[in-house]
Design a binder for these strands. Structure first.
Lengths: 157, 157
DNA sequence: TATTGTTATACTCTATAACTATA
DNA sequence: TATAGTTATAGAGTATAACAATA
């Protein structure tokens, strides 16, 4: 029964300006709590931090990236990425090699072990979160997908 | 024009099971990046961390809470909340008092300065995020609101 | 004994500053 | 000189363990 609902908005309808601060506040709060919960709930059967797994995921998609590109993508400073890459290299998940055209660069690529870890981990690492989503209806899931896309865009803008 | 869209789902339509892991993964990634971006973009004119502001916000809504209740609400361990409350108390944003019926408890309440800070901060602290939202259309804003609500529920479950 | 909160301590993640190697 | 990355160091935020006070 949609009789009480506002009519569907055209796709380009601007948001009501008065709602924006409220949504911003709600979103910020929920992101902070969600992040903490995700950090707490992550699967303990590999020793990679969430940040390291994100790096590995980027390399899974891109095969080889410079350390600087990884740092920019993950929005961390280069020293932080150096640490993550060190850790991943020690574990055999990635390898470094020197850039060919520019020998200052460090090209990072994923190993077979890294690839296997990503595949295996993608099956299990979101298990907790996926479990929290199973009871959602299709509209709610769609809203999450839309929100994730918007947040991704905002966070990397 | 909705001719190409699937018919509106009944509210209880279950989500497609195959989409869940994908949404979980997208959501997790975007939450992590968003949180880092929010931490970087916060307004520098007060010295309160994001966590401390969340505590102050809870006290703004609830007037007086035990330290344990605050810790549970923010999903941190009691020692972490002790630290945050110490910091807020030193700044004059909150006051402690001993529980009356149970004298082990610490009741934390917000001061006038704390209230003013919350009000002032709510106008400015989400300014960056709100600015990122102004170009969204009504559907996207609604999706964010729905997502925030779901994340809040999941994070505090 | 169990619970509420605090103190002491350590760990993780991130940052800035100073440095090396290369462009 | 400028840039890519590393090393050294520090800070923020969180946790666990041991403790004190109270129930």
């Amino acid at each position: 029964m949609l009789t009480d609902m506002p009519t569907a908005q055209p796709v380009s309808a601007p948001a009501a300006a008065s709602d924006i601060p409220e949504v911003a506040s709600e979103l910020r709060t929920s992101v902070m709590r969600m992040r903490r919960r995700l950090a707490n709930e992550r699967h303990p059967d590999n020793d990679l931090s969430l940040g390291s797994m994100a790096v590995l995921g980027a390399l899974y998609a891109n095969d080889e990236m410079t350390l600087g590109a990884l740092a920019a993508r993950e929005r961390v400073q280069p020293p932080s990425m150096t640490r993550m890459v060190n850790f991943l290299e020690e574990g055999g998940y990635v390898v470094r090699r020197q850039g060919e055209t520019d020998r200052r660069q460090v090209l990072v690529s994923i190993t077979d072990k890294g690839r296997r870890t990503v595949r295996k981990d993608r099956l299990s690492r979101d298990a907790w979160l996926a479990q929290q989503l199973v009871d959602l209806d299709a509209d709610e899931l769609a809203a999450l997908r839309t929100a994730a896309s918007i947040m991704e865009r905002i966070a990397t803008s």
